[in-house]
Amino acid sequence: MVVLTAICAALYAAILIPFKVVPLIPGITEFRPANAIPVVCSFLFGPAAAWGSALGNLIGDFFGGLGPGDLFGFLANLLYGLVPYAVWEAVTDAPPVPEGPLASLGLLLVMGVAAMLCATVVGWGLHLLGFHPFTVLGTVVLMNNLVVAVVLAPFLLAVLYPRVRRARLLYRDLLGPRRPLPRWRAALGATLVLVGTCTAFAAGELIAGGRWVAPWAAYETASRRLEVGLGLLPLLGLAIVGLALL
């Protein structure tokens, strides 16, 4: 586990670093083909990938500037590596490879949710700190994650999954079979993750854009940091509770 986590982290960081020179939002995010790594590794290595992508993102910033925003980067990438395998496994026993239209669609959906949750947490956190508006950062990260997930991840999974399975390095080989989950719990968890993520993202766009104020966060700050910060909190909480159920 330690080694796999370190390897996921190092891979992520190593592929991030060359792209530090073409930033999308300087100092915060870059155009990152590397963002396929957490998703792909998640399906292969499970928890090791979640911790690995959180650490990998942090290490990537070790090579190009560290700041308070990294706390949220850590959390966002942890979720980015956690959601895909956790949700997929709760919903189906099928291997996460794009074989057939149903599996492909399911994969895209799961990856999309992960991408959106990651983008929402980054956008939320950095808006809360007052660094960058959610409208810009959240959107950019989402687009980047989505494009990479759709274009790269299925191809990588198709080639890598069978090999990792043969090498007996899938996390299920290492951790043993998962405990069966009651159906209601799996369904509720997955639904909460989906609903929490989508509403949080939408709320982020609306609040930061000045088109809505959450009734439970009706402040007036210069940068709307508290409006966004507190406005999104309960919605993100839903997604986290959902994940905890899985």
Binding site: V2, A9, A10, A13, A14, I59, F62
Partner: peptide, 21 residues
């Protein structure tokens, strides 16, 4: 300790994978 060690190990591996890439 394991978290800290994982961080160190990952950090040490970055140049190795970077060169490989």
């Amino acid at each position: 300790y394991t978290m800290g060690f994982t961080l160190t190990l990952a950090f040490r591996l970055v140049p190795v994978f970077f060169d490989a890439a």
